[in-house]
Design a protein around this nucleic acid. Sequence first.
RNA 1: GGACCGGUAGUUCAGUUCUGGUUAGAACGCCGCCCUGUCACGGCGGAGGUCGCGGGUUCGAGUCCCGUCCGGUCCGCCA
Length: 591
Amino acid sequence: MKRTHKCNQINSSLIGQEIAVAGWIHRRRDHGGVIFFDIRDEGGLVQVVYNPDLEDTFSIAESCRNEYVVFSAGIVRERPEGTVNDNLSSGEVEIVASDLEILNHSKPLPFQLDEYTSAGEETRLKYRFLDLRRSEMQQNLRLRSNASTYLRDYLNNKEFIEIETPLLTKATPEGARDYLVPSRTFPGSFFALPQSPQLFKQTLMASGFEKYYQFAKCFRDEDLRADRQPEFTQLDIELSFTDADEIMNLITEMIRDVFKKTLDIDLDKFPKITYREAIEKYGIDKPDLRNPLELLEVKSLFKNCDFKVFNDPANDEDSRIAAIRVPNGKSLTRKQIDDYTAFVGNYGAKGLAYIRVEDPSKGKEGLQSPIIKFIEDEIIESLMKNLDAKEGDIIFFGAGKRNIVNDSLAALRDLVAKDLDLLTCEWAPCWVIDFPMFEKNNSGNLTPLHHPFTAPKCSVEDLKIDPLGALTDAYDVVLNGTELGGGSVRIHDQEMQRTVLNLLSIDDDEAEEKFGFLISALQHGCPPHAGLAIGFDRMIMLMTDSDSIRDVIAFPKTQTASCLLTDAPGQAAQDQLDELHIRFHGLEKEE
RNA sequence: GGACCGGUAGUUCAGUUCUGGUUAGAACGCCGCCCUGUCACGGCGGAGGUCGCGGGUUCGAGUCCCGUCCGGUCCGCCA
């Protein structure tokens, strides 16, 4: 006999029928004279009752343990008065068993799967196959599957086609460290796993596929974070004959569609913020717009101030002085402020100045702060006026090098909002646009903010004259302070491409060697094109309200990029290494 | 490369600093017995420990010191 129903299909409409279920023993309750099983399958739970009058079946039930895999048949019956379980969808009924078969035994589990206990992540990852039985993980991966289905539907309906690109490929200049795969047939040569399919998708545009997408596995050998894995999935999209606005409209609609269909959430408008404005107001290019706090520029007020901590940055071009006014921040304790000071220290800030506003009508007397005694009365007065300080406010200041002030206050803004529960809504998407083309890295060289195939908004000539001033048609989509994805209008003109590469100190020979195929494609009738990629794992992480990207990936890696389930990476056999002509330097050979 | 948090029973944790000291505890799980309406069933009893690993200080170390490994959060890195 086979199973006739999934557990979530069982309800009072089946009363009187003989049915059969199969699944795991989620819990057993042995009363000596009667035994209850909650049998779990991927749909849900159902209670099965074993009575002692069926001796054989009852004795099998007595021998069963949690997580045994069983088959059981019986009659669906209304539960006796007063024993209905409202927590189960099948809770009005139960199965009175006539048959029970053990399909597989189970050793006692290393950790419990119920929702009342929690296992550490190390244990969960080691026994990932058990962890994935838990309903939270089941729901996360099901939502992930649903979301990818809706996204595919959306794009397919708009006449996109999905094309796969190779995993064994060549290093592309995305800036991250590559994962390398040695070639057997070309001793000493390596494939690189793609950091993204960027060059392939542009090549596909040259091939005349005008609307492309792909759920693409990407690999980056960099240090991990809660939202970063060495291999991850991008929804990669590229279109010909389009522009930035069309892409942003398409993606806005797509994201709203998937949120609606998956979670029944109506996302609000996606406001557009320029990069410059984002840095100015939030200190970061992926602002959490649920957070009402903003950075206020107060640099000009301190130009003639005697207080060195403020005066120096006020007169330095690369510095910034910004304030965050926290309404009702007076509830913050001295200890919290000390913690904040240590916190901004992580970002290189040397301290955290603050002013408590006790009574703004009393001028300086109504303020409490370790720094005001160093600052002239008139400056304080105009500062309070500029910031529109109100009773109960606390004002934090960041003063120093521009990037340190931005980084530390951006992080502080998030932390304070979290501690004081200031978020104004659940979902706040936005687009960040008008990114600069280049920035200077630590060694003073130009590096692309996005990547070197992003089209500047200016001409070749203007780009050469003022590369740091050039803006691009790049756009990032940001949700709740997380960068969901980004893209740009691409360069389709070989002259512009050469100029950009030359500005990055990549000469024609090197360009030819590294991505000659793209240059060649640009030379043979490549249409104007643009696209973007969505960080699919991150999107699912937000949709499931998970703290970590690992909770939406079936088999993730640890922070040191190992897999606790498979014990990967592992050693290679000597004959494999010999075939690849690989020998180790400076490594103690194990054993 | 750096900062911080954690590692004690199968699991989740307490005990660890200020203050080292007899036999390292709890809960859940597990095992046994009892229990005919429970649903995180209940009752009684029991087993279960290389206190991550190595070294040091000490009469004595889970506890103090040094090193190291593993897991996590973050900075750097990464778009």
